[in-house]
Amino acid sequence: MKKAIKFSGIKFFILLSILFGSSEIYAQYGYGSGGYGYGGRGNNGYGRQRSSIPQAQETQKEPEPKTAEQLVDGEMPKITEALALNDFEQAVLSSVLKKYVQERIEARILKLPPEKMSEVFENITKRQDEELKAGLPLEKYEAFVALQKDGVSKTLKKNKKKKKDKRKKSKN
Rank of each mutant, 00 (worst) to 15 (best):
L85G: 00
Y38A: 08
R104K: 11
P54T: 04
T155K: 15
N123D: 06
V101K: 14
L71E: 00
E81P: 08
A91F: 09
K168D: 14
I5P: 10
Y36S: 12
I10L: 14
K162S: 03
N86V: 06
G35H: 05
E64D: 11
F88Q: 14
L138T: 14
F12D: 10
I124R: 15
E75I: 11
E103G: 05
A107E: 02
D73V: 10
E131D: 01
E24M: 14
G37M: 13
G21N: 00
I109L: 14
N86W: 10
F121P: 05
N44Q: 05
G39I: 06
L147P: 09
K3V: 11
L156H: 01
G21V: 00
I14L: 14
L132F: 06
G151N: 09
V145F: 04
K66G: 11
K166I: 12
S153N: 05
K166W: 13
I124K: 13
R50K: 10
I124Y: 07
T125D: 05
K162M: 04
K169R: 08
P137L: 15
K140H: 05
E122R: 14
S118E: 12
F13I: 07
V152N: 12
A143Y: 00
K163D: 02
G135K: 13
E81H: 11
R41K: 11
E119T: 11
T59I: 10
Y141K: 15
A82Q: 15
K61S: 08
E89I: 01
K116N: 07
I5H: 07
A134D: 04
E106P: 14
Y46S: 04
G42W: 05
E131C: 01
F121S: 01
S118M: 13
Q148W: 08
I14M: 13
P137F: 13
F144C: 07
F88V: 10
F13P: 09
A68S: 14
K158D: 01
S51M: 00
L93C: 03
G37F: 10
E69K: 14
L110D: 02
V101R: 12
N159D: 00
V101S: 11
P77D: 02
V120N: 05
F13W: 10
Y36E: 03
K158I: 02
S95F: 03
F20C: 15
A107P: 02
E103I: 02
V152S: 12
E139K: 13
L136R: 06
K157M: 09
E81M: 07
G34L: 08
Y26I: 00
L85P: 01
V120P: 05
K6D: 01
L19S: 13
D129W: 09
G74R: 04
T155F: 09
Q49R: 12
N43R: 15
F12R: 14
A91N: 07
K162A: 09
L112H: 10
V101L: 11
K3C: 09
D87T: 06
G151F: 08
K160I: 03
E130H: 12
G135M: 07
E115R: 09
A143D: 01
A82G: 13
A68N: 08
E75G: 10
G32Q: 06
I25F: 08
